[in-house]
Amino acid sequence: MKHDFGDLDVKPEYQLPDAPLPMPTQVLEHAHSRSWFEHLRSLWVLLAIRN
C-alpha cells in the first residue's frame, strides 16, 4: 500500500541526481519450466511406452 506522508518533504538539495541507468530483468527460469510432477509423469509415460 502507498503511504501518505502529507507535507513531509525533502529539501531539493538532498534529492538524488537524475542519472538513470537501465536495469534489465534477468532470466532465471527456463522458458518451459516443468514441475516435479510433470517430470514424473513424463518418466511414467516413457516407461509405459517402452514396456
Binding site: L16, P17, A19, P20, L21, M23
Partner: peptide
C-alpha cells in the same frame, strides 16, 4: 536507486 541515479 540504480534506475534513477546509477549512471552518476
Amino acid at each position: 536507486f540504480i534506475r534513477r541515479s546509477g549512471a552518476a
